[in-house]
């Protein structure tokens, strides 16, 4: 395997008095989808937010392509090529879909071929291009949230639960878009609770518990071993 695009070395993060991450060791291979799995409250979202710099690591190192980004400000991390799709989607409700996308194109005007590709992945965004994002449905907002990350090529995508609370029709749209992103050779660290999506997209997986990575390996291996799933996450994913 080539050098990982992202490496976390013994990362500890506190939020107020709470010790959330307690020595996270994680590698995200280049050009692959790495699933970050685990029960609620084990530190998956905190891991993503620590990587993007919203919360600061108290200890440890975060390396993006070998460059230490642990103490870099969030805008610098984003400009280094990290696209972030937060759990709450983070769309700008008062701005139109178009304005949301223009804002996401940090390096200049939106590339028209890239935009066509985004529209192909998420047709409703073309329909509602001039509409305020706050008027979109939950699924459309999630599409916009991912489309914003896709509008420019990034070195790494951090995506937090993109299918959470969505109807099956939207879930399949999301999965198809993420598969296309993956086919373009993108490196993705994806937090996902929907097992069928995780199994379909994931190349490798890391399972968290109590603020640490307790298992990492091939997604295929985890997906086919019910006993392992039971041991790591307290339930068999097949039950999903």
């Amino acid at each position: 395997m080539s050098d990982p695009i992202l490496r976390l070395e013994g990362v500890y993060t506190n939020i107020a008095q709470y010790h959330i991450l307690q020595g996270v060791e994680l590698e995200v291979p280049r050009g692959a989808v790495t699933m970050l799995l685990g029960r609620n409250g084990v530190g998956k979202t905190t891991t993503l937010r620590t990587i993007i710099g919203h919360w600061r690591a108290r200890q440890g190192r975060i390396l993006l392509d070998g460059q230490d980004i642990t103490q870099m400000p969030t805008p610098a991390i984003a400009r280094a090529g990290v696209g972030f799709v937060p759990e709450d989607m983070g769309i700008f409700a008062n701005l139109t879909v178009e304005e949301n996308m223009v804002l996401a194109a940090v390096s200049g005007p939106i590339d028209s071929a890239r935009l066509d590709w985004v529209f192909q992945a998420f047709p409703p965004l073309k329909t509602f291009w001039k509409s305020e994002a706050g008027n979109l449905s939950g699924g459309q907002k999630q599409m916009l949230s991912i489309a914003r990350a896709m509008v420019e090529e990034r070195r790494l995508y951090l995506i937090d639960e993109p299918t959470k609370g969505l109807a099956p029709a939207i879930v399949s749209t999301m999965a198809r878009a993420l598969r296309e992103l993956k086919a373009q050779g993108a490196s993705i660290l994806l937090v996902e609770q929907n097992f069928s999506v995780a199994r379909a997209l994931g190349d490798s997986a890391c399972v968290m518990d109590d603020g640490r990575i307790i298992w990492s390996g091939e997604m295929r291996e985890l997906a086919t071993d019910a006993a392992l799933q039971e041991r790591l996450m307290g339930l068999s994913m097949e039950a999903h």
Binding site: P73, P75, A78, G90, F92, A93, N94, E99, V102, L103
Partner: peptide
């Protein structure tokens, strides 16, 4: 664009920074 950043920043400053703008 600067106006867009300001309007977006009024709404969600954290996300504006995550897009790469020095709010």
């Amino acid at each position: 664009k600067i106006g867009l950043i300001v309007r977006a920043g009024v709404e969600n400053g954290e996300m504006v920074q995550a897009l790469g703008y020095r709010l």
